[in-house]
C-alpha cells in the first residue's frame, strides 16, 4: 500500500496580526510549524500502514525551508519525504497547488492520499478535493473515524454539521481528516535521528511533467486583491456594580436587543 500524506508548513497563525494603522502584517518571531490538521493526517497514514503494510511518503510544496516540516514527519515515522520546489510554482492558488501536487503524486505513485482538512493560514480546505478531481479518484472529506480498513475498501465516518455519515469508498482514494480522527504521536528518538540523516527528495517542474500554463500564477484563477484588518469592536459597554446590578443591566440590554 503506497500511502501519501500531503502536508504544509504554516506560520503559527495565532501569532499573526495586522497593524490596523498601516495595514501591514506583524509576525515577528512567529514560528513555522506543520499545519496542525496535517499532523492528524500523518498519524492516520502511520496507522493505515500498520494495518495494511506499505510505506508512508510525506509530500509538501514550498521553498527549501519546508524541509524542516518533512523531517519532522520522518521523525514521527514516515518512511520518506518529497519536497516539491520550483520558482515556477510561485503564486499558486488552491487550483494551481492542487494541479501541481496531484502531478507529483502521480509521479510518485499512490493508493491512499491523506490531507489535513485545511491549512490554518488559508483555511480554504480546497486543495485536497481539487487534487482528487485532477487524479480522477474519489475523495471523502472530514474523515473523523475509520470503521473498516481493507486494501480495496475503506469505510469511514465523515463528520457533518449534525452527526456523521458512514461512507464506503473504493481505493485509490483521497481522504481529508479532522482532529477527531486520532491523537498525533510525538516524534520518537530513533525517528529524530533518522530524520537528521534522511535525504529529502526534491522534485521540480520538469520532474513531474506539469504544463507551465497550469503552474503558479498562470495556473491560478484567483488573486488576492488586498488584505486588511478585521473590524474591531467599537461599542464596548462595561457593566459595573454588584453581581446583582451587573446581572440586572445585562438583562435590560438583552431585552432591548429583543433576545428575551
Amino acid at each position: 500500500m503506497k500511502i501519501i500524506v500531503c502536508i504544509k508548513q504554516v506560520p503559527d497563525t495565532a501569532e499573526v496580526r495586522i497593524n490596523p494603522e498601516t495595514n501591514t502584517l506583524i509576525r515577528d518571531g512567529v514560528p513555522s510549524i506543520i499545519n496542525p490538521f496535517d499532523l492528524h493526517a500523518i498519524e492516520a497514514g502511520l496507522h493505515l500502514k500498520s494495518e495494511l503494510g506499505g510505506t508512508v511518503t510525506v509530500l509538501t510544496m514550498g521553498p527549501p525551508q519546508a524541509e524542516d516540516a518533512l523531517r519532522e514527519a520522518i521523525s514521527m515515522g514516515a518512511d520518506e519525504a518529497v519536497l516539491l520546489t520550483d520558482r515556477a510554482f510561485a503564486g499558486s492558488d488552491t487550483l494551481a497547488t492542487a494541479y501541481t501536487m496531484s502531478s507529483a503524486v502521480r509521479t510518485i505513485g499512490f493508493d491512499i492520499i491523506l490531507c489535513g482538512k485545511q491549512a490554518i493560514d488559508g483555511d480554504t480546505a480546497q486543495v485536497g478535493p481539487e487534487m482528487a478531481e485532477f487524479l480522477n479518484i474519489p475523495h471523502v472529506a472530514y474523515v473523523g473515524k475509520f470503521e473498516e480498513i481493507n486494501a480495496g475498501m475503506l469505510r469511514v465516518q465523515r463528520l457533518m454539521d449534525e452527526g456523521y455519515d458512514v461512507v464506503e469508498t473504493s481505493v485509490p482514494v483521497l481522504l481529508t481528516v479532522v482532529k477527531e480522527l486520532n491523537q498525533p504521536r510525538l516524534p520518537s528518538l530513533k525517528g529524530k535521528m533518522k530524520a537528521k540523516k534522511s535525504v529529502i527528495k526534491k522534485l521540480t517542474h520538469p520532474d513531474i511533467g506539469t504544463e507551465e500554463k497550469n503552474l503558479g500564477l498562470a495556473g491560478s484563477p484567483t488573486q488576492v486583491k488586498n488584505i486588511f484588518a478585521p473590524e474591531a469592536k467599537k461599542d464596548r459597554k462595561v457593566l459595573t456594580g454588584t453581581p446583582g446590578e451587573q446581572a440586572a443591566q445585562l438583562i435590560e440590554e438583552l431585552k432591548s436587543l429583543k433576545c428575551i
Partner: peptide
Amino acid sequence: KVLAQSDIFGI
C-alpha cells in the same frame, strides 16, 4: 505509552 512510543524507555 507516549514514552514507550518515543523510544525514551530504551535510551
